[in-house]
Design a protein around this nucleic acid. Sequence first.
DNA 1: AACTAGCAAGTCATCAGATAACTTCTCCAG
DNA 2: CTGGAGAAGTTATCTGATGACTTGCTAGTT
Lengths: 234, 234
Amino acid sequence: MSAIDDAFHGLRQIIASGELTPGQQFPSEAQLCDRLQVSRGSLREAVRMLGALGVIESRHGSGTYVSALEPEDIIGALALTVDLMPLEGLLEMYELRRVLEAHATSQAASRMTDAAAAKLGATLDALEATMDNDEASELDARFHEAICELAQNATLTVLLRVFRSRSRSYQLFGIPAGHEIKRQSDLSHREILNALVQHDPATAAAAAAAHVIQTERWLREHRPVARLRSAAAG
Amino acid sequence: MSAIDDAFHGLRQIIASGELTPGQQFPSEAQLCDRLQVSRGSLREAVRMLGALGVIESRHGSGTYVSALEPEDIIGALALTVDLMPLEGLLEMYELRRVLEAHATSQAASRMTDAAAAKLGATLDALEATMDNDEASELDARFHEAICELAQNATLTVLLRVFRSRSRSYQLFGIPAGHEIKRQSDLSHREILNALVQHDPATAAAAAAAHVIQTERWLREHRPVARLRSAAAG
DNA sequence: AACTAGCAAGTCATCAGATAACTTCTCCAG
DNA sequence: CTGGAGAAGTTATCTGATGACTTGCTAGTT
């Protein structure tokens, strides 16, 4: 086993064994080097690996800590990698997105409140009114995000956010057929909101699934080139 | 922006821009250091980060390459981290597992073949016959894995495998109530298989969801201590 | 011509040491 | 009681050297 593997599994074991719990601080790099019998370089590479995976966190001048280890930390690690996947592999993910988005919307229908309905309605009003692509993309995301929050499952919310962020990079509203796409998208959103307001989980799930399928078909047909977000986005 | 961030986003950009595609080799460390204007140490830490995320791969003595970037590579990165999550956060993931397992089983019902039915039946025969916990756990996993493969979605298969591996670490069959748990689990499996054989997606999905809910309830009630797998398992 | 052993170049892996930058706490002056 | 200077501890970064592994070439043999 290589030195970096030793360090990686050693650090992982410290957490897995319960020696350190979420939020607690690791010993200093020098002490960890002694304990794990690796050089500082190898240790730091292992720390970075676990950092990239959302498991630990280094703070310059302060120390290295176990992350909160909440689903958000773990799933969030995918955010920077999903953007790199070729479209082909991504379409497979859409099947999952459809299923999960349907579930989230179904849950939201069960837990719908008047306040939430008003907020969602206002978002759709603004979305239908705007002609700006970036603003439309932003409002679209906010609409779906708000629905996810009603489902009260942070893992679900984060996972769908990752999927959605990739879709947004394709800027479907900006392509030649964008106007017609947006019109149909607006209709789909209204169908979803109607089902939510009527506390109808089954219809809400169906509407959400149909909406995702719609988006997926547009991506397949038009295959627009992704507009990569700035590297600083992460 | 820190040196490691520069290196990380620089490497990421090389892939995102299409300069290198899956399977291709990066320039040597020295060349990358020149190009990205960071020291070798910083570069290597960035490489490790992307390696941990399943995006790139270093081969000793050969070079550094872009991974296949298939869903399996990206999702697989979660395997080593989900094991570290506290049970509380994990139970939230079970809601997703239920939804996805139901979907996979539903898809499998649509695509069921006689050969697959025979194979699944044989697996269940062996599972019901064995009294060995490890073997039972192994056969249980094989049963669900085979169903996933019928759904023909690699992302789904890998994601559910990650969830399942964590469940396995709890060794539910080994606790005092394990005998009764296994009996009910066996019954659930038969219900799932029956629905699959009858090409009945709706019933199959319901049976799968019920099976996951059952497992989730056992975990909540018994809260067994996880038996951590050896560090070398990764 | 085909095959094999061994050499050579290129690559990543690992270590050690030094310096810079940042955070946190302490303590003293106001 | 407050604010700032300073010390101590930590991570961030760079540099140079050596080890280990892979790959391709070459020369010799069959």
